Simulated assay, not measured.
Amino acid sequence: MCSSGFKAFQSKIVLSVLLRLVCICKREQPIYTTRAHVFQIDRTTKKNWVPASKQAVTVSYFYDSTRNSYRIISVDGSKVIINSTITPNMMFTKTSQKFGQWADSRANTVFGLGFSSEQQLAKFAEKFQEVKEAAKTARDKSQEKVELLSNHSQQESGRETPTGNQASSINGTDDEKIFHVGPETVLLKNENDLLKSAVEQSNSNAKNLETELQTLRENNARLVDALQESSANVESWKKQLSASKEESDTLRAKIADLEVQCNEASQEKQRNAQLGVRVQELEAELNDKEQELENLRKQAETIPILMAECESVTSKLQSAEIKNRELEGRIDVLHLDVDESRQKQGNIKGELKKFMDVLDVKLDELHEFRRGLSRLGADN
């Protein structure tokens, strides 16, 4: 009897250990994984983005079954660059065709993700909305549980209060006893009904527990067999584990080489893009030079016409110069004539002045003669 009880106890311990191992393994599992460039907002300026990873890293959604919570986790080597617990109040915003961001008040920062395509960004945003709704549902369920527990505690406290009233009524007067007899019997009847229903429920639960206990015993036996078989296969598992470790090391080395090649390929793509832009600029410059050359050709076609016009203008200019010289000669002659006329005019002015002086003298003489005649007439 003791040996059987000890074996049952041992099997229960083994079952509990296995269940704990299963819970630890299944506690937090990735539900969605993608790759993106991770950024964080500059905490000083709150405007500029600071790259948290030098290249695209793995970004995953994780679900914690024990805490019933969701997180976004990203690891770059041995450094955790994102550890954000999703709450129903969070909002994922698409700021461009390939970039999105969300704010984490617990981490006091804003995370940004740059994707290589619009489809990846849309899938990540859709998954963010789903996880946020699931977090909201989990929060509502926890609140409902808290409310049920509080209501149950209130009901228990409410059930205890009638007993106090009953004691007070028993210790009171005869009138109070008569007054409280009816409600107490009703309460006792109700409690009796509740107790009956609880006993029936407990009986049904006991039967269910017996069936569950039987199934647990069967599962326990199976787990014991599986544990014995697993202990027998530990050595083979160890060998497989060492082989898988070596294979994983080789795969990691290959992944590192592939990442280096991808980086080189991305750099070559950037260089090719820059060269393509430069080629387009040179083609545009070549088109401009060809247009200028065409314009120069058209201008060269008009050069003979311009030369003929220039020759005609030169001949006209020569004839104009000759006429100008002739006019200058005429002007010199006219200057001489003007000087002579000025000199003659001066001589005429001098002669006129002399004549005027003589005329003034004659006029004075005439005045004197007139005065003499007027005197003679007065004397006569």
Rank of each mutant, 00 (worst) to 15 (best):
K353T: 07
L149G: 04
G164E: 10
F124S: 00
V358D: 10
N83E: 07
Q120R: 06
S16H: 01
T314E: 05
T44C: 01
I255C: 07
A232Y: 01
S231W: 03
K7D: 12
V17R: 09
Q267R: 13
D257N: 12
V75C: 04
P304Q: 05
T250W: 01
K123M: 03
V333M: 08
I81N: 02
K123W: 00
K127F: 00
L336I: 14
L359Y: 06
K54A: 11
F99E: 03
V110E: 08
K79T: 12
A284L: 02
L376K: 09
K145L: 13
D193K: 12
D257Q: 13
K123V: 01
I81V: 11
Q299S: 04
G350Q: 13
F62E: 00
S231R: 03
L359E: 01
V224M: 02
T45N: 12
T109G: 03
A36E: 05
G158D: 15
Q274K: 12
G276H: 10
S315W: 06
K145R: 09
S60Y: 04
L149S: 15
V181M: 14
V186I: 01
E156D: 10
K141C: 07
L227K: 11
K238Q: 08
G114R: 14
L241Q: 15
A138R: 04
H367S: 12
D76C: 05
D337R: 11
L15F: 07
V338T: 13
T250C: 00
S341R: 15
I86P: 03
K123Q: 10
N220D: 01
G114V: 04
V313E: 12
S116Q: 06
E281Q: 07
D225A: 05
V75E: 03
K98T: 10
H367Q: 14
L373H: 01
R27E: 09
A138K: 04
G112C: 05
R278Y: 12
N89A: 14
V279R: 08
